[in-house]
Design a protein around this nucleic acid. Sequence first.
DNA 1: GTTAGCACTCGTAGATGGTGAGTGCTAATA
DNA 2: TATTAGCACTCACCATCTACGAGTGCTAAC
Lengths: 349, 349
Amino acid sequence: MDLSERKLKILSAIIGDYVRTAEPVGSRTLSKKPELGYSPATIRNEMADLEELGYLTHPHTSAGRVPSDKAYRLYVNALMDKKELSKEEKTLIANRLKGSMNEFEKTIEHAASLLSEITNLTSFAITPKKNEDVLKYINLLPVDSETVILMIVSESGKVNNRAIKMSVAYTEENLNLLAKNMTYNYKGKTISQALTNNIIANFETDIIAMSGLAEDLMPNFMRTLEDMLNVNLYMEGLTNIFNIPEYSDLEKAKGFIELLSKKEEMTRKLIERDDGITISIGEENIEDGLQDCSLITASYAINGKLVGKIGVIGPTRMEYGEVTSIIEYLTDNLNNAFRLEGGGEYDEE
Amino acid sequence: MDLSERKLKILSAIIGDYVRTAEPVGSRTLSKKPELGYSPATIRNEMADLEELGYLTHPHTSAGRVPSDKAYRLYVNALMDKKELSKEEKTLIANRLKGSMNEFEKTIEHAASLLSEITNLTSFAITPKKNEDVLKYINLLPVDSETVILMIVSESGKVNNRAIKMSVAYTEENLNLLAKNMTYNYKGKTISQALTNNIIANFETDIIAMSGLAEDLMPNFMRTLEDMLNVNLYMEGLTNIFNIPEYSDLEKAKGFIELLSKKEEMTRKLIERDDGITISIGEENIEDGLQDCSLITASYAINGKLVGKIGVIGPTRMEYGEVTSIIEYLTDNLNNAFRLEGGGEYDEE
DNA sequence: GTTAGCACTCGTAGATGGTGAGTGCTAATA
DNA sequence: TATTAGCACTCACCATCTACGAGTGCTAAC
């Protein structure tokens, strides 16, 4: 059921036009294009065929044609050419990212903001889920007679700490011993291993000599590990939605913004997406309210692992080729930056 | 130029009605209220007077009256009675806050979310500006041969750290010495003192023996101090705006959301506001786009100092009495919780 | 001082009709 | 056989109009 060359050309032209104008495109408009030297009638026949095959729809009898999700999918898979970015765009991206490169979270936030600015869409990014991250170093530092700081450093350079109010007395030597002991036990374990494999429970019995200390510490240790697993969501350019004709209806704009404001759901949705560049179009999104939207996401890596995601969300009518190219270039930049030659230089906020 | 008892009663009734319905209120509606046993004509006369005095306006000839900013101001200053919260509301607030009490930032975020939920308005909160916070303890920890963690603990219990890639070799003793030295120099200084008073510059010369080390460290030290000063902004219930008739116009909703999305500006605006409960109505807000809005903010304290702010923003037509009571009760709760008996148990994220 | 009565105002909602972009179908053409 | 011209038809959109009703201001009576 392959489409003829001419049908593909027409479909492509319709998509191109509709993406630009957001108006249903008619046969007359198309026949004026130099690359389509057919009369309106001929084009109408072809369009009728394309509609029968499910690639076009018809808002009402006397309106032009609108591409369906199926058409966009075909376009993305076969027709679209990824646009090479211009020198200016490339240097813009590179320069804008450079400024904030030494703080990981800031860089990601910045990248999302840049992405929404260039594409005029709503962008988002999530930091990596760190359950593959490996513990490297644990320390306990006395602050005053009743406060101790628990510090956990991971292989990826992330540092977490927590000030703990102790209920039992301690000495600096005790703390040191305990910290060494913990480092010995947990070093090389991933965070999720540390949390799930009951090492913690076993550990407590090991050092029965200072179980009071451990009892104060362990719940805090676990909570800090849980914190380290947490994924942060950044979202930028939410109000770009207001410039898109599809959302000039208040109800739709409201729905969109309400949907995107649900941080937990959005985070989950993004985590679940495949790695690499992924495009999901309209009805392919099963979530309520996302049926009119397309998402383009890509994953970025830190030192080849620990994959986070960045992407955009917009109406199905979007510049797939251009946006994809931009995201691709952006993640390339991020990947290079996060290749940890200056490794571990990310700091806590 | 005092208003007569009757005028006040009528004005109060108009405000009450308008706040509920968002519709201009007419003389007939008012005369039906049992507490206002006058004929529509009488009330019309009084309303005409009130309009002349600037308390009411007239969207068009054949519409009812709408309270002006001046009317709301009078209402807030003199007429409004703060509503005592019901037992249910009080326990709701107390319980909902309790859950997250041991992490400072989370608590604030949670409080903002709770506030927007109860008031059906958009809420926000900022964490305290910490320039009054006093440094307590500085430490340098070796992680591996080229990475060192700089850790700064403040009196208020905040812990910040940063992993630093060193360009010169170091020994553990050197680090210890330097850390002790730094603690000795900075302990008791506020963050802003440490940043501004050139202690840092002087300090560098003091320990000329290991100036290479210090050169690597000091820029990071300053950046971390700057981070510590930073104020976080939380915003919740942005989409509540869509349920407010005043913003059923797309342009207005867009303007509102765009305005609130500017984090830096909002933060600045909030920082500048007076402490205690502050109500600013309509035109009293000089910022562009805030002229149709009212803000109610309150400050909360940590251990009596380090004041952050929390509040709501909504149309000038809002339930000033009720919202004020809620905010008051909420900040009371926060103040108690932050009285640092379990002090310093806030952790970094 | 208060109220009833009445003419007047003006926003809102619904009905009407013209316009134009676009279609589908048929018959003529290359 | 594929393409095109011609034509009747459809339908969203816009502007105009009208009726309605809530509310006012003013005047005169109570």
